[in-house]
């Protein structure tokens, strides 16, 4: 099983129930354990609210428990994820943030940037959650990491019976132009097709090692700046989940100023976004 331990970062906000309902659905989908992490005081009233929500969304103390933590919210949540050996951290997130919040980093974005486990950022959680129907996955080659991302996305698509689009994105045209001082359009087009073919072969070889089963997989190469291109694709094709491989290193302010591919996605989430890290714990 790919996801055994799911965590949900909670705040007693209007979106609490919707976030909890989504996390409960995922817990059931993967038959996993759910940990709710709240950073703040343990108020009796809050505990009471949670008990009611547990009952409403089919959660029990056997499959779910709550951690009440203090301190810096981001650090406390990340520490808890490490301690609880979480595979998937779920958090609500705004689709877009103002420039100051973006540069400073909201809690959800900071979790997405710093977590060592996979992070699912929900943009429009619902109290009556639906299965994902249209999943878009980034298939760009990140060495061994991509195969795990594909594995997780395929597993999710299988369980939710969703359509899966695996997208490879690159500035193929720009790369083709780069290769010479002067080229004809035909030459540029030939080089571009060669670059796309190379990418396709890499993806085919990754997919040949993964059991796709009954999942309907569609692969595509799209032109554009990585991060932006897949984001636009997900938006235009009304995807309900975008799955991306986590960057090699934690993202910092530098990555927002000189934008990392992932930061283009985080700047304006096109839909729910799942950032996949290879599992740290067995």
């Amino acid at each position: 099983m790919i996801v055994k331990q799911i965590a949900l970062a909670i705040a007693f906000s209007p979106r609490l129930e919707a976030n909890l309902a989504e996390a409960a659905r995922l817990r059931k989908l993967f038959d996993a354990h759910l940990t709710l992490i709240h950073v703040g005081d343990h108020e009796a009233h809050d505990a009471c609210v949670l008990e009611k929500l547990f009952e409403k969304h089919g959660l029990s103390h056997q499959n779910t428990h709550v951690l009440w933590k203090h301190g810096n919210p981001v650090e406390a949540i990340l520490d808890s994820c490490r301690e609880e050996e979480i595979n998937l951290l779920v958090t609500g997130a705004m689709e877009k943030e103002g420039i100051i919040t973006y540069l400073k980093g909201s809690i959800a974005r900071q979790l997405g940037r710093k977590a060592q486990c996979s992070v699912l950022m929900l943009t429009e959680p619902s109290v009556q959650p639906h299965a994902f129907k249209n999943i878009v996955v980034g298939g760009n080659d990140h060495e061994s990491k991509t195969s795990y991302t594909l594995e997780l996305a395929i597993e999710l698509a299988r369980r939710d019976q969703a359509k899966l689009n695996i997208i490879q994105e690159a500035d193929y045209h720009r790369m083709a132009q780069l290769g010479s001082d002067v080229k004809s359009e035909k030459e540029i087009s030939t080089i571009k097709n060669e670059l796309i073919d190379e990418d396709r072969k890499k993806l085919d070889s990754l997919l040949s090692c993964t059991d796709c089963g009954q999942v309907h997989v569609n692969t595509m190469n799209i032109e554009g700046k990585p991060g932006i291109a897949i984001s636009n694709f997900a938006r235009e094709h009304q995807a309900d989940l975008l799955v991306l491989t986590a960057p090699e290193n934690k993202l910092s302010l530098f990555d927002r100023v000189f934008q990392h591919d992932m930061e283009y996605v985080l700047a304006h989430l096109p839909c729910n976004v799942l950032i996949v890290h290879q599992p740290q714990f067995n």
């Binding site: 790369m175 083709a176 780069l178 290769g179 010479s180 001082d181 060669e194 670059l195 190379e198 990418d199």
Partner: peptide, 16 residues
């Protein structure tokens, strides 16, 4: 020289 290097890598199929 970036263009020369890029073209050489493409010719050798090493660009990506």
């Amino acid at each position: 020289a970036l263009p020369v290097i890029a073209r050489t890598l493409m010719d050798l199929k090493l660009f990506k």
